[in-house]
Design a protein around this nucleic acid. Structure first.
Lengths: 209, 209
DNA sequence: GACACCATACCAACCAGTAGGTATGGTAAT
DNA sequence: ATTACCATACCTACTGGTTGGTATGGTGTC
Protein backbone atom coordinates (compact mmCIF):
# COMPACT_ATOMS: atom_id res chain seq x y z
CA UNK A 1 0.00 0.00 0.00
CA UNK A 2 1.58 3.29 -1.06
CA UNK A 3 1.71 6.29 1.25
CA UNK A 4 -0.62 8.08 -1.12
CA UNK A 5 -3.23 5.42 -0.64
CA UNK A 6 -2.97 5.31 3.12
CA UNK A 7 -2.91 9.04 3.24
CA UNK A 8 -6.30 9.57 1.73
CA UNK A 9 -8.37 6.81 3.23
CA UNK A 10 -8.06 8.14 6.74
CA UNK A 11 -11.75 8.95 6.87
CA UNK A 12 -12.59 5.40 5.95
CA UNK A 13 -10.10 4.18 8.55
CA UNK A 14 -11.82 6.27 11.17
CA UNK A 15 -15.21 4.94 10.14
CA UNK A 16 -14.02 1.34 10.21
CA UNK A 17 -12.50 1.95 13.61
CA UNK A 18 -15.74 3.51 14.80
CA UNK A 19 -17.68 0.41 13.77
CA UNK A 20 -15.40 -1.81 15.79
CA UNK A 21 -15.13 0.35 18.88
CA UNK A 22 -18.77 1.35 19.12
CA UNK A 23 -19.90 -2.22 18.65
CA UNK A 24 -17.59 -3.25 21.47
CA UNK A 25 -18.28 -0.53 24.02
CA UNK A 26 -21.38 1.28 22.90
CA UNK A 27 -21.62 4.87 21.75
CA UNK A 28 -21.38 6.79 25.00
CA UNK A 29 -18.45 4.82 26.38
CA UNK A 30 -16.54 5.21 23.13
CA UNK A 31 -13.95 7.94 23.39
CA UNK A 32 -12.83 9.79 20.32
CA UNK A 33 -9.29 8.81 21.19
CA UNK A 34 -10.33 5.16 21.20
CA UNK A 35 -11.44 5.54 17.62
CA UNK A 36 -8.28 7.42 16.68
CA UNK A 37 -6.11 4.78 18.29
CA UNK A 38 -7.96 1.96 16.53
CA UNK A 39 -7.53 3.84 13.26
CA UNK A 40 -3.86 4.57 13.89
CA UNK A 41 -4.46 8.31 13.71
CA UNK A 42 -4.67 11.26 16.03
CA UNK A 43 -7.30 13.71 17.09
CA UNK A 44 -5.99 16.25 14.66
CA UNK A 45 -6.96 14.00 11.83
CA UNK A 46 -10.25 13.12 13.46
CA UNK A 47 -11.41 16.71 13.79
CA UNK A 48 -10.30 17.42 10.29
CA UNK A 49 -12.88 14.92 9.03
CA UNK A 50 -15.62 15.23 11.66
CA UNK A 51 -16.82 18.20 13.63
CA UNK A 52 -18.27 16.33 16.59
CA UNK A 53 -18.52 12.87 18.04
CA UNK A 54 -22.17 12.68 17.07
CA UNK A 55 -21.30 13.53 13.47
CA UNK A 56 -18.93 10.58 13.47
CA UNK A 57 -21.66 8.31 14.77
CA UNK A 58 -24.12 9.48 12.15
CA UNK A 59 -21.50 8.99 9.44
CA UNK A 60 -20.77 5.57 10.89
CA UNK A 61 -24.44 4.66 10.73
CA UNK A 62 -24.58 5.76 7.07
CA UNK A 63 -21.36 3.91 6.36
CA UNK A 64 -22.84 0.86 8.06
CA UNK A 65 -25.82 1.09 5.75
CA UNK A 66 -23.51 1.13 2.73
CA UNK A 67 -21.38 -1.76 3.90
CA UNK A 68 -24.30 -3.97 4.83
CA UNK A 69 -26.21 -3.07 1.66
CA UNK A 70 -23.33 -4.30 -0.43
CA UNK A 71 -22.93 -7.40 1.69
CA UNK A 72 -26.56 -8.37 1.36
CA UNK A 73 -26.85 -7.36 -2.28
CA UNK A 74 -23.99 -9.67 -3.14
CA UNK A 75 -25.13 -12.54 -0.95
CA UNK A 76 -26.33 -15.81 -2.47
CA UNK A 77 -29.76 -15.87 -0.83
CA UNK A 78 -31.34 -14.13 -3.82
CA UNK A 79 -30.80 -17.12 -6.07
CA UNK A 80 -33.70 -19.46 -5.28
CA UNK A 81 -36.59 -19.19 -7.70
CA UNK A 82 -39.22 -19.47 -5.01
CA UNK A 83 -39.78 -16.33 -2.91
CA UNK A 84 -40.25 -18.29 0.31
CA UNK A 85 -37.00 -20.10 -0.36
CA UNK A 86 -35.34 -16.74 -0.80
CA UNK A 87 -36.70 -15.55 2.54
CA UNK A 88 -35.57 -18.71 4.27
CA UNK A 89 -32.19 -18.43 2.60
CA UNK A 90 -31.96 -14.87 3.89
CA UNK A 91 -32.57 -16.08 7.41
CA UNK A 92 -30.01 -18.83 6.97
CA UNK A 93 -27.57 -16.25 5.72
CA UNK A 94 -28.10 -14.16 8.83
CA UNK A 95 -27.42 -17.24 10.88
CA UNK A 96 -24.26 -17.95 8.90
CA UNK A 97 -22.99 -14.48 9.76
CA UNK A 98 -22.84 -15.40 13.46
CA UNK A 99 -19.11 -16.04 13.34
CA UNK A 100 -16.18 -14.74 15.33
CA UNK A 101 -16.46 -12.54 18.37
CA UNK A 102 -19.60 -10.68 19.41
CA UNK A 103 -18.44 -7.24 18.24
CA UNK A 104 -17.74 -8.76 14.83
CA UNK A 105 -21.26 -9.85 14.01
CA UNK A 106 -23.60 -7.74 16.12
CA UNK A 107 -25.34 -4.70 14.72
CA UNK A 108 -23.92 -1.21 15.03
CA UNK A 109 -27.18 0.64 14.65
CA UNK A 110 -29.16 -1.68 16.88
CA UNK A 111 -26.60 -1.13 19.59
CA UNK A 112 -26.56 2.63 19.21
CA UNK A 113 -30.32 2.93 19.02
CA UNK A 114 -30.73 1.60 22.54
CA UNK A 115 -28.50 4.27 23.96
CA UNK A 116 -29.31 7.35 21.97
CA UNK A 117 -32.96 7.15 20.98
CA UNK A 118 -33.98 9.75 23.51
CA UNK A 119 -30.91 11.93 23.59
CA UNK A 120 -29.58 12.26 20.01
CA UNK A 121 -32.56 12.49 17.64
CA UNK A 122 -30.46 12.86 14.49
CA UNK A 123 -28.43 9.79 15.35
CA UNK A 124 -31.56 7.86 16.22
CA UNK A 125 -32.98 8.71 12.84
CA UNK A 126 -29.81 7.59 11.08
CA UNK A 127 -30.06 4.27 12.90
CA UNK A 128 -33.72 4.00 12.03
CA UNK A 129 -32.96 4.59 8.38
CA UNK A 130 -30.38 1.85 8.40
CA UNK A 131 -32.66 -0.71 10.01
CA UNK A 132 -35.80 0.26 8.13
CA UNK A 133 -34.22 0.41 4.71
CA UNK A 134 -32.66 -3.00 5.18
CA UNK A 135 -35.99 -4.40 6.29
CA UNK A 136 -37.58 -2.93 3.16
CA UNK A 137 -35.32 -5.03 0.96
CA UNK A 138 -37.26 -8.07 2.15
CA UNK A 139 -40.68 -6.71 1.27
CA UNK A 140 -40.74 -7.69 -2.42
CA UNK A 141 -39.96 -11.31 -1.63
CA UNK A 142 -42.53 -11.37 1.13
CA UNK A 143 -45.17 -9.89 -1.17
CA UNK A 144 -44.28 -12.39 -3.86
CA UNK A 145 -44.58 -15.19 -1.34
CA UNK A 146 -47.93 -13.94 -0.15
CA UNK A 147 -49.42 -13.84 -3.61
CA UNK A 148 -47.81 -17.06 -4.80
CA UNK A 149 -49.08 -19.08 -1.87
CA UNK A 150 -52.31 -17.20 -1.39
CA UNK A 151 -51.48 -16.51 2.24
CA UNK A 152 -53.41 -13.73 3.88
CA UNK A 153 -53.90 -12.61 7.43
CA UNK A 154 -54.05 -9.45 9.45
CA UNK A 155 -50.40 -8.67 8.87
CA UNK A 156 -48.54 -6.79 6.18
CA UNK A 157 -45.37 -7.60 4.29
CA UNK A 158 -43.72 -4.62 5.95
CA UNK A 159 -44.60 -5.85 9.43
CA UNK A 160 -43.12 -9.28 8.73
CA UNK A 161 -39.98 -7.70 7.31
CA UNK A 162 -39.63 -5.62 10.46
CA UNK A 163 -40.32 -8.61 12.66
CA UNK A 164 -37.40 -10.47 11.09
CA UNK A 165 -35.20 -7.58 12.13
CA UNK A 166 -36.68 -7.52 15.62
CA UNK A 167 -35.99 -11.22 16.04
CA UNK A 168 -32.42 -10.82 14.82
CA UNK A 169 -31.74 -7.75 16.93
CA UNK A 170 -33.16 -9.53 19.94
CA UNK A 171 -31.00 -12.54 19.16
CA UNK A 172 -27.97 -10.25 19.39
CA UNK A 173 -29.05 -9.03 22.81
CA UNK A 174 -29.37 -12.58 24.09
CA UNK A 175 -26.00 -13.46 22.61
CA UNK A 176 -24.43 -10.54 24.42
CA UNK A 177 -26.19 -11.39 27.66
CA UNK A 178 -25.06 -15.01 27.51
CA UNK A 179 -21.70 -14.14 26.01
CA UNK A 180 -22.00 -16.56 23.12
CA UNK A 181 -23.64 -16.87 19.74
CA UNK A 182 -25.41 -20.21 20.25
CA UNK A 183 -28.58 -18.68 21.63
CA UNK A 184 -28.72 -16.31 18.68
CA UNK A 185 -28.49 -19.21 16.24
CA UNK A 186 -31.36 -20.95 18.03
CA UNK A 187 -33.43 -17.79 17.87
CA UNK A 188 -32.80 -17.39 14.18
CA UNK A 189 -33.87 -21.00 13.72
CA UNK A 190 -37.17 -20.10 15.35
CA UNK A 191 -37.51 -17.21 12.95
CA UNK A 192 -36.88 -19.59 10.09
CA UNK A 193 -39.52 -21.94 11.44
CA UNK A 194 -42.04 -19.13 11.73
CA UNK A 195 -41.62 -18.07 8.14
CA UNK A 196 -41.88 -21.68 7.02
CA UNK A 197 -45.08 -22.17 8.98
CA UNK A 198 -46.54 -18.91 7.72
CA UNK A 199 -46.18 -20.06 4.14
CA UNK A 200 -46.84 -23.72 4.88
CA UNK A 201 -43.37 -24.84 4.00
CA UNK A 202 -41.87 -27.60 6.10
CA UNK A 203 -38.15 -27.72 5.43
CA UNK A 204 -35.86 -27.18 8.36
CA UNK A 205 -33.21 -24.48 8.64
CA UNK A 206 -29.92 -25.21 6.98
CA UNK A 207 -26.98 -25.92 9.22
CA UNK A 208 -24.15 -23.55 8.55
CA UNK A 209 -21.22 -25.35 10.09
CA UNK B 1 -45.40 10.98 54.46
CA UNK B 2 -43.46 11.52 57.64
CA UNK B 3 -39.76 12.41 57.62
CA UNK B 4 -39.05 9.05 59.21
CA UNK B 5 -40.58 7.26 56.27
CA UNK B 6 -38.81 9.27 53.61
CA UNK B 7 -35.59 8.94 55.48
CA UNK B 8 -35.26 5.21 55.17
CA UNK B 9 -36.42 4.44 51.67
CA UNK B 10 -33.67 6.42 50.02
CA UNK B 11 -32.00 3.35 48.63
CA UNK B 12 -35.22 2.31 46.97
CA UNK B 13 -35.64 5.84 45.67
CA UNK B 14 -32.19 5.69 44.12
CA UNK B 15 -32.96 2.35 42.53
CA UNK B 16 -36.25 3.57 41.13
CA UNK B 17 -34.51 6.63 39.80
CA UNK B 18 -31.80 4.46 38.26
CA UNK B 19 -34.42 2.44 36.41
CA UNK B 20 -35.88 5.55 34.88
CA UNK B 21 -32.67 7.34 34.02
CA UNK B 22 -30.78 4.34 32.65
CA UNK B 23 -33.74 3.32 30.53
CA UNK B 24 -33.83 6.84 29.13
CA UNK B 25 -30.15 7.48 28.49
CA UNK B 26 -28.38 4.17 28.75
CA UNK B 27 -25.86 3.16 31.37
CA UNK B 28 -22.74 5.01 30.24
CA UNK B 29 -24.47 8.31 29.63
CA UNK B 30 -26.17 8.16 33.01
CA UNK B 31 -24.40 10.36 35.52
CA UNK B 32 -24.61 9.56 39.18
CA UNK B 33 -25.90 13.05 39.73
CA UNK B 34 -28.71 12.37 37.26
CA UNK B 35 -29.83 9.50 39.43
CA UNK B 36 -29.50 11.57 42.59
CA UNK B 37 -31.48 14.40 41.08
CA UNK B 38 -34.24 12.04 39.95
CA UNK B 39 -34.31 10.55 43.43
CA UNK B 40 -34.31 13.94 45.14
CA UNK B 41 -31.09 13.13 46.97
CA UNK B 42 -27.44 14.07 46.83
CA UNK B 43 -24.22 12.31 46.02
CA UNK B 44 -23.41 11.98 49.68
CA UNK B 45 -26.46 9.82 50.11
CA UNK B 46 -25.68 7.90 46.96
CA UNK B 47 -22.22 6.89 48.05
CA UNK B 48 -23.54 5.93 51.43
CA UNK B 49 -25.64 3.25 49.76
CA UNK B 50 -23.46 2.28 46.79
CA UNK B 51 -19.71 2.17 46.43
CA UNK B 52 -19.51 2.62 42.67
CA UNK B 53 -21.67 3.36 39.69
CA UNK B 54 -21.41 -0.24 38.54
CA UNK B 55 -22.61 -1.45 41.92
CA UNK B 56 -25.70 0.70 41.47
CA UNK B 57 -26.30 -0.80 38.05
CA UNK B 58 -25.96 -4.34 39.34
CA UNK B 59 -28.31 -3.55 42.21
CA UNK B 60 -30.68 -1.98 39.71
CA UNK B 61 -30.62 -5.14 37.59
CA UNK B 62 -31.40 -7.24 40.65
CA UNK B 63 -34.11 -4.81 41.69
CA UNK B 64 -35.48 -4.98 38.16
CA UNK B 65 -35.65 -8.76 38.47
CA UNK B 66 -37.64 -8.43 41.69
CA UNK B 67 -40.05 -5.86 40.33
CA UNK B 68 -40.72 -7.71 37.11
CA UNK B 69 -41.01 -11.06 38.88
CA UNK B 70 -43.77 -9.68 41.04
CA UNK B 71 -45.46 -8.04 38.08
CA UNK B 72 -45.55 -11.24 36.06
CA UNK B 73 -46.34 -13.47 39.01
CA UNK B 74 -49.42 -11.39 39.72
CA UNK B 75 -50.50 -11.03 36.11
CA UNK B 76 -53.68 -12.66 34.82
CA UNK B 77 -52.09 -14.67 32.03
CA UNK B 78 -51.68 -17.71 34.28
CA UNK B 79 -55.42 -18.29 34.48
CA UNK B 80 -56.27 -20.18 31.28
CA UNK B 81 -56.50 -23.93 31.73
CA UNK B 82 -54.78 -24.68 28.44
CA UNK B 83 -50.99 -24.21 28.40
CA UNK B 84 -50.97 -22.77 24.89
CA UNK B 85 -53.62 -20.29 25.94
CA UNK B 86 -51.42 -19.31 28.85
CA UNK B 87 -48.48 -18.73 26.52
CA UNK B 88 -50.57 -16.67 24.16
CA UNK B 89 -51.98 -14.75 27.09
CA UNK B 90 -48.44 -14.05 28.23
CA UNK B 91 -47.60 -12.61 24.83
CA UNK B 92 -50.78 -10.54 24.89
CA UNK B 93 -49.81 -9.30 28.32
CA UNK B 94 -46.42 -8.20 27.04
CA UNK B 95 -48.21 -6.35 24.28
CA UNK B 96 -50.54 -4.72 26.77
CA UNK B 97 -47.53 -3.38 28.65
CA UNK B 98 -46.57 -1.21 25.67
CA UNK B 99 -48.11 1.89 27.16
CA UNK B 100 -46.80 5.35 27.87
CA UNK B 101 -43.41 6.63 26.84
CA UNK B 102 -40.56 4.44 25.62
CA UNK B 103 -38.52 4.61 28.84
CA UNK B 104 -41.60 3.44 30.72
CA UNK B 105 -42.03 0.10 29.01
CA UNK B 106 -38.66 -0.85 27.57
CA UNK B 107 -36.34 -3.24 29.33
CA UNK B 108 -33.60 -2.06 31.67
CA UNK B 109 -31.42 -5.10 31.38
CA UNK B 110 -31.80 -5.45 27.64
CA UNK B 111 -30.68 -1.87 27.28
CA UNK B 112 -27.71 -2.24 29.58
CA UNK B 113 -26.60 -5.53 28.07
CA UNK B 114 -25.93 -3.92 24.71
CA UNK B 115 -23.59 -1.41 26.24
CA UNK B 116 -21.74 -3.34 28.88
CA UNK B 117 -21.45 -6.93 27.71
CA UNK B 118 -17.79 -6.55 26.87
CA UNK B 119 -16.70 -4.04 29.45
CA UNK B 120 -18.46 -4.86 32.74
CA UNK B 121 -18.66 -8.65 33.12
CA UNK B 122 -20.38 -8.61 36.50
CA UNK B 123 -23.05 -6.28 35.22
CA UNK B 124 -23.48 -8.34 32.07
CA UNK B 125 -24.04 -11.41 34.20
CA UNK B 126 -26.63 -9.61 36.34
CA UNK B 127 -28.47 -8.67 33.16
CA UNK B 128 -28.21 -12.21 31.87
CA UNK B 129 -29.65 -13.56 35.10
CA UNK B 130 -32.59 -11.23 34.85
CA UNK B 131 -33.40 -12.15 31.26
CA UNK B 132 -32.71 -15.84 31.57
CA UNK B 133 -34.60 -16.37 34.79
CA UNK B 134 -37.63 -14.60 33.39
CA UNK B 135 -37.46 -16.75 30.27
CA UNK B 136 -37.32 -19.84 32.46
CA UNK B 137 -40.71 -19.00 33.94
CA UNK B 138 -42.21 -19.83 30.55
CA UNK B 139 -40.65 -23.26 30.26
CA UNK B 140 -43.22 -25.24 32.26
CA UNK B 141 -46.09 -23.95 30.14
CA UNK B 142 -44.16 -24.64 26.94
CA UNK B 143 -43.38 -28.17 28.08
CA UNK B 144 -46.99 -28.73 29.03
CA UNK B 145 -48.07 -27.47 25.62
CA UNK B 146 -45.61 -29.73 23.86
CA UNK B 147 -46.81 -32.85 25.62
CA UNK B 148 -50.50 -31.92 25.49
CA UNK B 149 -50.47 -31.30 21.75
CA UNK B 150 -47.85 -33.87 20.88
CA UNK B 151 -45.74 -31.27 19.14
CA UNK B 152 -42.16 -32.16 18.59
CA UNK B 153 -39.37 -30.73 16.48
CA UNK B 154 -35.71 -29.96 16.70
CA UNK B 155 -36.22 -27.24 19.28
CA UNK B 156 -36.39 -27.23 23.04
CA UNK B 157 -38.78 -25.55 25.43
CA UNK B 158 -35.88 -23.43 26.66
CA UNK B 159 -35.04 -22.22 23.19
CA UNK B 160 -38.61 -21.16 22.52
CA UNK B 161 -38.74 -19.38 25.85
CA UNK B 162 -35.57 -17.51 24.95
CA UNK B 163 -36.87 -16.74 21.50
CA UNK B 164 -39.91 -15.02 22.98
CA UNK B 165 -37.51 -12.77 24.86
CA UNK B 166 -35.43 -12.15 21.77
CA UNK B 167 -38.51 -11.13 19.82
CA UNK B 168 -39.66 -8.82 22.60
CA UNK B 169 -36.23 -7.26 23.11
CA UNK B 170 -35.93 -6.74 19.38
CA UNK B 171 -39.37 -5.18 19.33
CA UNK B 172 -38.10 -2.63 21.85
CA UNK B 173 -35.17 -1.76 19.62
CA UNK B 174 -37.46 -1.15 16.68
CA UNK B 175 -39.76 0.93 18.85
CA UNK B 176 -36.82 3.07 19.91
CA UNK B 177 -35.56 3.37 16.35
CA UNK B 178 -38.94 4.43 15.06
CA UNK B 179 -39.78 6.41 18.18
CA UNK B 180 -43.13 4.75 18.75
CA UNK B 181 -44.59 1.57 20.15
CA UNK B 182 -46.72 0.54 17.14
CA UNK B 183 -43.97 -1.48 15.49
CA UNK B 184 -43.35 -3.31 18.75
CA UNK B 185 -47.02 -4.25 18.98
CA UNK B 186 -46.90 -5.61 15.43
CA UNK B 187 -43.81 -7.63 16.24
CA UNK B 188 -45.40 -9.10 19.33
CA UNK B 189 -48.38 -10.04 17.19
CA UNK B 190 -46.03 -12.00 14.97
CA UNK B 191 -44.65 -13.73 18.02
CA UNK B 192 -48.20 -14.61 19.02
CA UNK B 193 -48.85 -15.96 15.56
CA UNK B 194 -45.73 -18.09 15.66
CA UNK B 195 -46.68 -19.73 18.92
CA UNK B 196 -50.18 -20.33 17.64
CA UNK B 197 -48.85 -21.95 14.48
CA UNK B 198 -46.34 -24.05 16.40
CA UNK B 199 -49.13 -25.59 18.44
CA UNK B 200 -51.68 -25.53 15.65
CA UNK B 201 -53.93 -23.04 17.33
CA UNK B 202 -55.65 -20.49 15.13
CA UNK B 203 -57.01 -17.71 17.31
CA UNK B 204 -55.72 -14.21 16.67
CA UNK B 205 -53.98 -11.98 19.20
CA UNK B 206 -56.18 -10.06 21.55
CA UNK B 207 -56.45 -6.36 21.02
CA UNK B 208 -55.47 -4.47 24.10
CA UNK B 209 -56.96 -1.07 23.48
C1' DG C 1 2.56 28.98 -2.27
C1' DA C 2 -1.86 27.46 -1.41
C1' DC C 3 -4.40 23.87 0.14
C1' DA C 4 -5.55 19.43 2.12
C1' DC C 5 -4.09 16.55 5.53
C1' DC C 6 -2.36 15.29 9.88
C1' DA C 7 0.36 15.83 14.33
C1' DT C 8 1.38 18.00 18.96
C1' DA C 9 0.10 20.58 22.67
C1' DC C 10 -3.27 22.44 25.14
C1' DC C 11 -7.79 23.94 27.43
C1' DA C 12 -12.11 23.93 29.93
C1' DA C 13 -15.80 21.34 31.35
C1' DC C 14 -17.39 17.41 33.19
C1' DC C 15 -17.89 13.79 36.53
C1' DA C 16 -16.76 9.64 39.52
C1' DG C 17 -15.32 9.38 43.73
C1' DT C 18 -13.47 11.53 48.46
C1' DA C 19 -13.28 14.22 52.76
C1' DG C 20 -15.35 15.67 56.36
C1' DG C 21 -19.18 17.39 58.43
C1' DT C 22 -24.31 17.46 60.54
C1' DA C 23 -28.80 15.42 61.81
C1' DT C 24 -31.48 11.70 63.69
C1' DG C 25 -32.62 7.81 66.34
C1' DG C 26 -31.52 4.02 69.22
C1' DT C 27 -29.29 2.04 73.53
C1' DA C 28 -27.77 1.71 78.01
C1' DA C 29 -25.85 3.16 82.23
C1' DT C 30 -26.62 6.32 85.86
C1' DA D 1 -35.52 10.47 82.29
C1' DT D 2 -31.42 12.35 81.38
C1' DT D 3 -26.91 11.97 79.86
C1' DA D 4 -23.34 9.86 77.17
C1' DC D 5 -22.41 7.28 73.34
C1' DC D 6 -22.68 5.44 68.84
C1' DA D 7 -24.45 3.93 64.30
C1' DT D 8 -26.97 5.13 60.40
C1' DA D 9 -28.27 8.36 57.11
C1' DC D 10 -27.51 12.27 54.67
C1' DC D 11 -25.30 16.65 53.16
C1' DT D 12 -21.76 20.27 51.18
C1' DA D 13 -17.56 21.07 49.23
C1' DC D 14 -13.77 19.55 46.96
C1' DT D 15 -10.28 16.90 43.94
C1' DG D 16 -8.11 14.75 40.30
C1' DG D 17 -8.40 12.28 36.26
C1' DT D 18 -10.81 12.16 31.96
C1' DT D 19 -12.33 13.81 27.54
C1' DG D 20 -14.61 16.52 23.82
C1' DG D 21 -12.94 19.97 21.43
C1' DT D 22 -9.33 23.87 19.98
C1' DA D 23 -5.10 26.23 18.53
C1' DT D 24 -1.24 25.94 16.15
C1' DG D 25 2.33 24.19 13.40
C1' DG D 26 4.40 20.93 10.16
C1' DT D 27 4.44 18.16 5.68
C1' DG D 28 3.41 16.57 1.22
C1' DT D 29 1.00 17.58 -3.23
C1' DC D 30 -0.78 20.27 -7.00
Amino acid sequence: MTPTQTRHDSKKKLLDAALRVIRSKGYSATRIEDVCEAAGLTKGSFFHHFETKEELAIAAADYWSEVTSELFAGAPYHQPADPVDRLLAYVDFRKALLRGELPDFTCLVGTMTQEVYGTYPALREACNQSISSHAKTLVPDIEAAISKYGVRGDWTAESLALFTQAAIQGAFILAKAKNGSAVAADSIDHLHRYIGLLFNQTESPKETI
